[in-house]
Write a protein that binds this DNA or RNA. Structure first.
Length: 155
DNA sequence: GCCAACGTTGGC
DNA sequence: GCCAACGTTGGC
């Protein structure tokens, strides 16, 4: 079992949106970066742990826990001319972009980016490294555990 | 709105 | 295959 941090803009899909969806599950559409796509395609497995992260917003940080709920399959938005994620270069027979489904486990308190940066036990997390822009990053087991402890401790 | 960082594109 | 230009991300 692996662990991941997945960024979502709450204007698009927030933790509360996810909680309100049928099955509390959403297709993780819109990834347009090969490295992030490859994580979904090659490494994610059903049941992998996900830190649901709010980015590009007033209070960036971890907002809940989720899990990988499907294998990777073609991202429908790449073929939708009305979508901002439309990719006219992608071919129906050989889709360029994939997504997995992500299912809510539970909403948590917000573990803010600021607090994450203050915690020495999280200092090596990939998402905190300088210049990191990947929307999906692997999370080491010890970081996963440290985040859970922070979420359960000081709630 | 600014800007550092980094991925992608495209000319050569 | 190099690399400059450009576009995007995302915190501030």
């Amino acid at each position: 079992m692996r662990f991941w941090l997945m960024k979502s803009e709450p204007d698009e899909v927030s933790i509360d949106h996810l909680a309100a969806l049928p099955q509390q599950t959403v297709a993780w559409f819109g990834v347009r970066n090969y490295q992030a796509r490859n994580f979904m395609r090659d490494q994610m497995q059903l049941g992998d742990g996900v830190l649901f992260y709010h980015s590009s917003c007033a209070e960036p940080g971890i907002a809940g826990l989720a899990e990988v709920a499907s294998a990777a399959y073609p991202d429908a938005t790449q073929f939708d001319p009305a979508s901002p994620y439309h990719d006219p270069q992608s071919d129906l027979q050989h889709p360029r972009w994939l997504n997995v489904d992500v299912k809510l486990v539970r909403k948590t308190r917000l573990l803010s980016l600021q607090e994450m940066r203050e915690r020495p036990e999280l200092a090596d997390m990939r998402v905190l490294q300088r210049g990191n822009r990947l929307s999906i990053t692997p999370v080491d087991p010890q970081h996963w555990q440290a985040v859970l402890t922070l979420l359960e401790g000081a709630a």
